[in-house]
């Protein structure tokens, strides 16, 4: 199989995944209890005429298979529809928020990856005191809930010292605290995975060879051992970046940031099917693309996989 055929096959699979995701979204909202028309109309009791109007406009008065057909038909035409609640086209609504989510996810991820690499290279299999301290701190970072870290960072860096905006800033300074909060939650996981992979690699005979050739310890680690530690890390990063791209609700809320996560949370609570579907499709797409990228990366990092995959 050539690389091109592999890519085509993966893209077709992506379409299937997205169709499945849309179907699950539709089924999920069908199965939740209560009349969706009433939920859409809000918590004050609506008049019977209004309920009828909503049912009719949104085809809730048609049989479920017909509703499903209409739903998939619109999606096939690339029409995500209009939000029930916000009365805006879903594409525009999500587009406005996606950039903010992506920026936060990528900066948070990059920060965590850099910090984890430094920690792992510095402490894997050496400096026992530092290693123990680092592992302890990582464990604390993993177990501390993001909403508390975020509130703590805000209290000191924004409320007291005025170094960063409390909310609503648009420049890069508005990204620092939210990214740091996200990164703190990830750095522990990354560092532990990387350290373990690296320690396993350091026991391999090729490291002994590399050392025998007279390379410095850090360069042996960076050039030879790190590559081996990367495989599990790539797997885990693929998952976490996908999850971040589909929204970091807690961090977005605490820092009053725009983002997919908040849109999704509000849409689920108000049965806003078009928005829920839009976000789910976006997440499915993000996960599919990331998985493709991860598979590609495996081949670069570990040349043995190239042969086995062909």
């Amino acid at each position: 199989m050539t690389a091109a055929r592999w890519l085509v096959r993966r893209l077709l699979l992506t379409v299937v995944v997205m169709l499945g995701a849309a179907t699950v979204a539709f089924a999920g909202l069908q199965l939740t209890p209560g009349d969706p028309a009433r939920v859409i109309l809000g918590s004050t009791t609506p008049s019977p005429e209004q309920v009828e109007q909503v049912r009719h406009e949104l085809a809730f008065d048609r049989p479920v298979p017909v509703q499903y057909g209409l739903f998939i038909g619109r999606l096939a035409k690339g029409d995500l529809g209009r939000s029930y609640q916000l009365r805006e086209p879903v594409g525009a609504l999500i587009g406005d928020q996606a950039w903010s989510s992506a920026l936060l996810a990528l900066t948070g991820f990059a920060t965590a990856l850099t910090a984890a690499t430094v920690l792992a290279v510095a402490t894997a299999g050496r400096r026992p005191a530092l290693r123990r301290l680092s592992m302890g701190l990582e464990l604390i970072a993993i177990s501390t809930p993001g909403f508390w870290v975020g509130a703590l960072l805000l209290t000191f860096f924004a409320f007291r010292w005025h170094l960063f905006p409390v909310a609503g800033g648009s420049g890069p300074e508005a990204l620092v605290l939210p990214s740091a909060t996200l990164a703190l939650g990830l750095v522990g996981v990354y560092a532990q995975v990387m350290r373990e992979g690296m320690e396993r690699a350091l026991d391999e005979p090729f490291v002994l060879t590399a050392r025998a050739r007279g390379g410095g310890e850090t360069s042996v680690r960076l050039r030879h051992a790190l590559r081996h530690a990367l495989i599990p890390l790539i797997t885990i990063s693929g998952w976490s970046v996908g999850a971040l791209l589909s929204g970091a609700v807690v961090v977005e809320t605490i820092f009053s940031r725009q983002g997919i996560g908040r849109v999704m949370a509000a849409a689920i609570a108000s049965r806003d099917l078009p928005v829920v579907t839009g976000v789910i499709l976006l997440s499915a797409l993000a996960f599919s693309l990331i998985n493709m990228a991860v598979d590609g990366l495996y081949r670069i990092v570990d040349p043995r996989l190239r042969e086995s995959a062909l």
């Binding site: 509130a151 805000l154 209290t155 924004a158 409320f159 007291r160 005025h162 905006p165 409390v166 909310a167 609503g168 809320t253 605490i254 820092f255 009053s256």
Partner: peptide, 16 residues
């Protein structure tokens, strides 16, 4: 729009 109570109050106390 600042949904968190503590953060909204922080925005006021810090003058933002």
């Amino acid at each position: 729009f600042i949904p968190e109570n503590a953060v909204r109050l922080g925005a006021l106390t810090s003058g933002q």
